[in-house]
């Protein structure tokens, strides 16, 4: 007889929600990478560390480098190797004019989208808060 523990059943139940969260994060990574470079040039590890400051953007490190490579191939980023006096050479990235324009467009779209979505889910959030307060 096959005995299944409760944990995998719970995990299976949560799978669609986790997948959705994962897709939400992945879908916004490109914009996050461009936004991280808005103030100035950074190298890969610095971008990763900047993402790590926000738990919502923490990601497997292997994800960011292919994204940077793709953005560079699309002409949205430029890069150059800078030899460090001590330590390893670093590949710095910065936004091109096309990258800045794309990021502005993305930021506008994202803001409008999240505002509309926020309005739609407001009753859900409020109901959740009321339930939590009632439980206290």
């Amino acid at each position: 007889m096959k005995i299944m523990s409760a944990a995998p059943v719970e995990a299976e139940k949560n799978q669609p929600a986790e997948r959705w969260e994962q897709q939400l994060r992945k879908g916004s990574l490109e914009m996050a990478a461009l936004a991280a470079l808005w103030p100035g040039r950074l190298y890969g590890l610095e971008i990763i560390r900047r993402f790590e400051d926000s738990s919502q953007l923490a990601l497997a490190e292997g994800t960011i480098y292919p994204i940077l490579s793709r953005l560079k191939n699309e002409g949205l980023l430029a890069s150059e190797w800078v030899e460090a006096e001590a330590g390893h050479p670093r590949k710095y990235y910065w936004l091109t004019a096309a990258g800045r324009a794309r990021l502005k467009h993305m930021a506008t779209t994202w803001t409008e989208f999240s505002r509309e979505l926020g309005r739609l889910i407001k009753p859900v959030i409020e109901a959740q808060k009321e339930k939590e307060e009632a439980m206290k």
């Binding site: 897709q23 939400l24 879908g27 990574l29 292919p66």
Partner: peptide
């Protein structure tokens, strides 16, 4: 493509 659609299409992996 919209950000989420790109993720679903696997454009961002």
């Amino acid at each position: 493509a919209p950000l989420f659609a790109r993720a679903q299409m696997g454009m961002v992996v």
